[in-house]
Amino acid sequence: MTYMTDRKRAVGAGSAHSGTAHHWFMTVSAVVLAVMLPVWLYLFGAAIGGTREQVVAAFANPFTAILTALVLVVSMRHFAKGSAVMVEDYAHGTARKAGLIFVISLSAVIATTGLYALIRIAL
């Protein structure tokens, strides 16, 4: 016998069965990225075309390093979740599972590689 009523189980979950957690994550990460991106685009764009010494010096700057790390981590989570929705829209069965594993792994590999590069430049 279960003590939870049907209504209690349904409240907040909606048709996606996970409530609004996904939508809220995308909203929060979008706002955070919207604040960071204009500054980061300028810093990254200015670093392109420089010599290796200039590029290393640019990303060794604490502000640029921390901002780049934040942009990488937040944007790759935003991508993984957004891309997962596309996979769920168009793929089914095993293809869906494989697609989800692929986009989540790809974003993790890119974020980790970028962080490794930033740490190596900073140290």
Binding site: I48, R52, V55, V56, T113, Y116, A117, L118, R120, I121
Partner: peptide, 10 residues
């Protein structure tokens, strides 16, 4: 971009 940054670090 990340590949380019990795190369700069290496």
């Amino acid at each position: 971009g990340v590949w380019w940054l990795l190369a700069a670090a290496v």
